[in-house]
Design a protein around this nucleic acid. Sequence first.
DNA 1: TTGTGTTTTATTGCCTCC
DNA 2: GGAGGCAATAAAACACAA
Length: 325
Amino acid sequence: MAGGSVFSGGRSNRSNLSVLVQNQSGPCNSEPLDRLFLSGSSYPFLGSRSMLSFEDVNVGKGTSNSRSFFQSFDREENGDDEFDEYLHHPEKKRRLSADQVQSLEKSFELENKLEPERKTQLAKDIGLQPRQVAIWFQNRRARWKTKQLEKDYEALQASYTSLQANYENLLKEKDKIKAEVLLLTEKLLPIEKGGGDVEQTDTNNLQLPLQKPPFDSASVGEGSKLSVVACKQEDISSAKSDIFDSESPHYTDGVHSSLLDPGDSSYVFEPDQSDLSQDEEDNLSKSLLPPYIFAKLEDADYSEPPETCNFGFPVDDHAFWSWSY
DNA sequence: TTGTGTTTTATTGCCTCC
DNA sequence: GGAGGCAATAAAACACAA
């Protein structure tokens, strides 16, 4: 212990002190103990006085003033009789007085570590052994650290709660925007499907082509592919609105399937493009994607994100795929 | 008064620094 | 290798409900 060195100049004596004092069962006749207790210094080592019990001294609760005992003891001559007498008392810890603790606290606020000079001076001022002061600072630092950890934990928890609330708000906002996009898309659908015949056709029937493909869907297979093929054949790409401009990053790479669910291949339109050049792929995408998206928008259930979008998070991670809107 | 949980004082062993 | 710090722990002192 750090304080041990104050009295006898060495860490190894730290344990010796306690052994010597605690094992006292007779006169103080050991050479090391004599040296420690009867030194000629102005602030002699007082042994573990603070740990010893004196029935007649400050046995009150919490307010016990060990200092008064120390001081009175110091004023006396440390005669052998009294010395021997107190050594025979059973060992007991003694709490520091309120004044002592206050002084220690003040000192701790200034600097939570003790230089040897400061320790000695403080000990002298409040009537404690330097070792006790060192121990008090040691324990005080441990308490401070514990409280600091608690504070840090609370701060982190608050931060997490705040972030979580913010995240949930963003999810709600995203859902709202998504619904608006869907609504707008549905409104645009008749215009898209109407193409050049719009002016000749009853506008009330603009959605019919998509709702009722001009061929038997059963002969084609999956509805999504069917829609793609149908749209391609109709070549309605010229009727695309600006919303579905092929320059939009949303449509440049396999598109909405990856936007909706990058991990769900069932959403990906995968014609056998292995034989296509990059240009052909691009052209195909440009001509097919918007209608495909229309079809998928009809097919997909956007009330819930694809399950594979969770990425292991407990909360549906809508953000990843929805931000593409 | 007593049992129990908490706080405070002190010890011990290990570690780092010089 | 000594000095000093820290974590873990012991144990006394204290607080408090039953």
